[in-house]
Simulated scan of single mutants.
Amino acid sequence: MSLLKVSGLGKSFGGVKAVDEISFDLAAGELLALIGPNGAGKSTTFNMVNGQLRADRGSIKLDGHELIGLPPRSIWKLGVGRTFQIAETFGSLTVVENVQMALLSADGKLLATWRKAAGHKRDEAVELLDKVGMAQQADRPCADLAYGDVKRVELAIAIANNPKLLLMDEPTAGMAPKERNELMALTKKLVVERSMAVLFTEHSMDVVFAYADRMIVLARGRLIAEGKPLEIRDHPKVQEVYFGSGKTFEKKAADKELA
């Protein structure tokens, strides 16, 4: 049964169709990679699921709840977490305080009466840090961490509200190969433990083919292929558009639009 169901999703900017009637689904406990060449519509799709952009048409349902029209915070409350291409943490706070801030927000206390992060659910925050291998650095300022460790802290923050769906935008960007594999292996473990679904964009194909359960491929705003990694690797259209130059597909698409 699908946890996330996207149907006929579309978004235009002026006369340009950034996302053109795409549909896909995602089950709990599954990692789905969203890939494609630059300008394919990946970020636009991602941001519509998260509520940062509103779709012009179509439907995005999470566990039966329609997400289109909801602000990002309401979508977050329904069980959607997110990490960013450039890690988002408070450098002036300690590692554990960053996670405690996320727990405060999950409890709805950030906008009510201010409480010091240090006094809120420290044990629970440390437990989350332990899951990402950062418990021993709990009291270090985030500003002092190596970038790979910051990404781990961001992951702990993203799962603080126990999301059903985790959106990961270029999770391994800027990381060395060893760090990339460690972070994605950790994500895979959390997916299994929590029956959590993950939708992620990624340019490192070694990461995608090693850790994705399924893949969807976009080109010029259209979904051109979906399937398991080995199916995608051997898909002629994907080889033409993404792994090759893409010139043939772009010419056909342009001819179709002019027709």
Rank of each mutant, 00 (worst) to 15 (best):
M1C: 14
M1H: 07
S2G: 04
L4N: 00
K5Q: 15
K5S: 11
G10W: 09
K11T: 01
S12R: 11
V16Q: 02
K17M: 14
K17P: 02
E21W: 06
F24V: 01
G29Y: 09
G29M: 04
L31S: 07
L34A: 00
G36R: 02
P37G: 14
N38L: 03
K42M: 09
K42F: 14
M48D: 06
V49Q: 06
N50S: 14
N50Y: 11
Q52V: 15
R57F: 12
G58M: 07
S59Q: 12
S59I: 04
I60H: 05
D63A: 15
D63Q: 06
E66P: 06
G69M: 12
G69H: 13
I75D: 12
K77T: 01
G79V: 00
G79D: 08
F84A: 12
I86K: 05
E88N: 11
T94V: 11
E97S: 04
N98E: 02
V99Y: 00
V99H: 02
L104A: 13
S105K: 11
D107T: 04
L111A: 13
W114S: 05
R115S: 13
A118T: 13
R122W: 03
A125H: 03
D130F: 11
V132A: 07
M134D: 09
A135V: 12
D139T: 09
D139N: 11
P141F: 15
C142T: 13
L145V: 08
Y147R: 08
D149H: 14
D149R: 11
K151G: 00
A156Q: 12
A160K: 01
N162G: 00
N162W: 00
P163V: 00
P163G: 01
P163A: 06
L165I: 00
P171N: 13
G174T: 13
E179I: 09
E179Y: 03
M184C: 09
T187H: 06
K188T: 08
L190A: 06
M196C: 05
H203M: 00
H203W: 01
S204T: 10
D206E: 12
F209Y: 10
M215R: 01
I216S: 01
V217E: 02
L223T: 00
I224V: 12
G227P: 07
G227E: 08
L230V: 12
E231V: 00
V238C: 10
F243T: 04
F243L: 15
E250A: 15
K251C: 05
A254T: 13
E257S: 14
L258H: 10
